[in-house]
Amino acid sequence: MKIALIATEKLPVPAIRGGAIQIYLDSVASVIAANHDVTVISITDPSLPDNQKINGVTYVRFTEDQYIQSIVQHMKTHQYDIVHLCNRPNWILSLVQVAPQTKFVLSVHNEMFAPEKISDAEGKKCIEAVSKIVTVSNYIGETITSRFPSAKSKTKTVYSGVDLNQYQPAWTEEGKILRTEARKELKLENKKIILFVGRLSKVKGPHILLQALPKIAEKEPNAMLVVVGSKWFGDNEVNNYVKHLYTLGAMYKDHVTFIKFVRPHDIPALYAMSDLLVCSSQWQEPLARVHYEAMAAGLPVLTSNRGGNPEVITEGENGSIIYDFDNPDAYVNPIVSLLKSESKRAKMGKNGRKIVETQFSWEHVAVNLLKVYEEARSNS
């Protein structure tokens, strides 16, 4: 098959500046390209050429200000069997018009079919025009099918994935080295590390964890919250909310460490050095990438009961779900319980690693997507 994967206009592929969609596309493209002709389309970046081929994948990049217009022109001169468009249902009709023989697969990573983002008429037309819709969680699928029942027969959950080689649990030789070096570099050798990775925004809830910190530290004096992230990918500017986090953190400076934006390449060491991950999302999160990364690194995961997050966590098996998610006190006992029990952490961490090995490698994601592409082709 000749396949085009189209990223949003936000960030380039490969994911040199982060981005869940960009990581997703780049990772599945190289697997699918082993047996198919794959082109990835994304925005330009000063550090990348406009056209290149890496590992059998053709990368085509257009400027952000003319992005959709450039893709339409590209489609006029390049014939694809499948076009997999990410997160932009409003672009579908423009693309279908210039490539009526192509089968379109729309992958939805956020609530793109919410009333404020797409009208009833636009939503119906988009659903009619696509052959398949893949969503990153059942939660996101339900946000589409509850409003547009006609999408049910076309919609399927294909969970995202993780590079199993990139994330090494602390019980492996490589993981042990990463853990020791990262802890030494950050002067956290004797700490029990609670990891938060994400944008520093209110919807991600890092302030909730900082508010929980005094009670956690009281019960576990070696507790250290490591907050990794910035207000936006690659942007370390301090806005009012980030300033508020730093002010809160300054009150408990022996128990919190802030690390600004980290390139994806350097993230695995931070997971390896940690003891557990907390995802404190306050919004209806589609299903945060950090769940897959933490499980791959052999960490138990505590996650808020928001959106798709709980779909990959089984209570007591690979982590816990926080139902009273906006209450700092609700995080205290689950965190302390894990920090105090190495055996519990090890059991959950090993279960999590096994889950990603059997369900969430990029190879699994690619196989699941190829099944969808084949179904799209066979449906007239």
Rank of each mutant, 00 (worst) to 15 (best):
residue 240 N to S: 15
residue 201 S to A: 15
residue 182 A to Y: 01
residue 285 E to G: 12
residue 310 P to V: 01
residue 243 K to T: 07
residue 71 I to L: 03
residue 66 Q to S: 13
residue 218 E to N: 10
residue 176 K to D: 11
residue 296 A to N: 11
residue 226 V to D: 03
residue 200 L to C: 10
residue 106 L to M: 05
residue 145 T to Y: 01
residue 126 C to D: 06
residue 289 R to S: 08
residue 375 E to Y: 01
residue 114 A to V: 12
residue 271 Y to T: 14
residue 155 T to D: 01
residue 35 N to W: 03
residue 156 K to P: 03
residue 272 A to C: 12
residue 278 V to I: 14
residue 141 G to W: 03
residue 258 F to P: 08
residue 380 S to K: 14
residue 6 I to A: 08
residue 163 D to E: 08
residue 88 R to L: 09
residue 41 I to V: 15
residue 178 L to P: 05
residue 48 L to N: 04
residue 3 I to A: 09
residue 272 A to D: 10
residue 120 D to L: 15
residue 10 K to C: 09
residue 2 K to S: 12
residue 29 A to Q: 01
residue 317 E to Q: 13
residue 127 I to G: 04
residue 124 K to A: 14
residue 212 A to D: 02
residue 55 N to M: 08
residue 266 D to A: 14
residue 81 D to K: 02
residue 348 M to D: 04
residue 302 L to T: 10
residue 172 T to W: 05
residue 92 I to F: 02
residue 51 N to A: 07
residue 12 P to S: 00
residue 291 H to A: 06
residue 302 L to F: 07
residue 248 L to A: 10
residue 344 K to F: 03
residue 113 F to W: 12
residue 83 V to A: 10
residue 114 A to G: 05
residue 358 T to H: 09
residue 17 R to V: 14
residue 20 A to L: 01
residue 70 S to V: 10
residue 125 K to W: 03
residue 318 N to W: 01
residue 373 Y to V: 12
residue 292 Y to L: 12
residue 8 T to H: 02
residue 177 I to K: 15
residue 179 R to C: 14
residue 96 V to W: 02
residue 56 G to D: 03
residue 151 A to C: 01
residue 142 E to T: 15
residue 305 N to Y: 05
residue 197 V to A: 04
residue 262 V to Q: 10
residue 325 F to V: 12
residue 124 K to I: 15
residue 67 Y to I: 14
residue 186 L to N: 13
residue 156 K to A: 09
residue 226 V to E: 01
residue 70 S to T: 00
residue 158 V to L: 01
residue 236 N to L: 06
residue 198 G to K: 07
residue 206 P to T: 11
residue 338 L to N: 00
residue 277 L to I: 15
residue 58 T to W: 00
residue 281 S to H: 06
residue 24 Y to V: 05
residue 377 R to Q: 02
residue 152 K to E: 12
residue 93 L to K: 14
residue 35 N to R: 13
residue 217 A to D: 04
residue 126 C to F: 07
residue 205 G to A: 00
residue 220 E to V: 13
residue 295 M to Y: 11
residue 181 E to V: 15
residue 271 Y to E: 09
residue 123 G to W: 03
residue 224 M to Q: 14
residue 239 N to V: 12
residue 363 E to K: 15
residue 137 S to T: 01
residue 30 S to M: 01
residue 179 R to E: 11
residue 145 T to L: 02
residue 346 A to S: 15
residue 15 A to W: 10
residue 315 E to M: 11
residue 362 W to D: 06
residue 319 G to A: 13
residue 182 A to P: 04
